[in-house]
Amino acid sequence: MSGQRMVVTGAGHGIGRALATRLAAEGCRVLVNDIDAGAAEQVAREIGAEAVGCDAASEDGVAELVAAAGDLWGGVDVWFGNAGVERGRGLQASEADWAASLEVNLLAHVRAARLLMPEWLERGHGRFVVTASAAGLLTMLGSPTYSASKHAVVAFAEWLSATYRHRGIVVQAVCPQGVRTRMVEQAGPMKAVLEHDGILPPERVADAVWEALHDDRFLILPHPEVAAYYAARAQDTDRWLADMNKVQQRMEALER
């Protein structure tokens, strides 16, 4: 991986920052992106990388970021679509909450893939890594916007892998549970649920991703317990939903 050209979106804070830091330490060429341009520039200065502050969810922002990597290095070897949002609660989530969730958590990846795939397919290799969350395999109580959009990006990543893996494209989905980020700190009663299997520091997620870059596994699970939950969900979906409803009831009790 040393010397490869890597773009990390949402890298001003949290998992993205930890990931960019690890990649740079391993000798990769890193382009740090965040909608918070100041945060992106700060991280880039700290790790000896390049920075582009733009909205990597929008068509124009994705195009700007891909073009910047082209100007710097002549292309991209690995794309880490890490930027994400958690907006809205329950059925009261607004149209704006749904729109933002789908734009950032799903369509940003679609737009990046559209621009990257032609060159990757022509040369016969490329790697596309999405930060999807365990919510994309299971669900996230309290937030239908997050659950639905993260399920959607896992489905999109699966489609990319099934469609292009024979042509040298590696696709991977990072699906952690609780990670010590601003999102978890603002999770309310859901934070107690996430703490059940441990709240990981972002650096642990970056370690798991770095390891997985060397074996091309599709699912990257920093919390290994997620694999068992995912299997149980598939084996007996009704039981899984009943158990999740019990957790929902406990959360409601905490809110009283």
Results as ranks from 00 to 15, higher is better:
251 M>P: 13
235 Q>T: 08
50 E>L: 07
210 W>H: 13
155 A>T: 11
227 A>G: 09
92 Q>G: 13
118 P>Q: 03
252 E>V: 15
170 V>R: 11
26 E>T: 14
189 P>N: 08
197 D>C: 11
11 A>P: 12
89 R>V: 09
151 H>Q: 09
5 R>T: 05
204 R>P: 12
90 G>A: 10
43 V>K: 07
207 D>M: 11
165 R>P: 07
204 R>V: 15
126 G>S: 00
256 R>T: 15
154 V>L: 07
22 R>C: 03
146 Y>Q: 06
232 A>D: 14
222 P>S: 03
222 P>Q: 03
147 S>H: 02
236 D>E: 14
136 G>V: 08
74 G>T: 01
29 R>V: 01
166 H>I: 11
2 S>Y: 07
166 H>L: 10
128 F>C: 12
158 E>H: 09
131 T>D: 01
244 M>L: 09
49 A>N: 15
104 V>T: 15
93 A>D: 08
87 R>C: 13
145 T>P: 06
240 W>C: 00
159 W>L: 15
204 R>W: 06
61 G>V: 12
142 G>R: 09
250 R>F: 10
48 G>V: 04
89 R>W: 14
215 D>K: 02
67 A>C: 10
189 P>H: 07
227 A>T: 00
87 R>I: 09
17 R>H: 02
212 A>Y: 06
13 H>M: 13
63 A>S: 14
219 L>G: 02
138 L>I: 15
32 V>A: 01
14 G>C: 07
256 R>D: 14
159 W>G: 15
61 G>M: 12
246 K>S: 13
125 H>D: 11
215 D>W: 07
122 E>T: 05
206 A>I: 14
40 A>Q: 02
131 T>C: 04
120 W>M: 04
184 V>C: 00
24 A>H: 10
134 A>F: 03
26 E>K: 13
89 R>I: 09
217 R>L: 02
9 T>Y: 06
73 W>V: 02
40 A>P: 02
12 G>Q: 03
249 Q>H: 11
242 A>F: 02
216 D>M: 04
1 M>R: 08
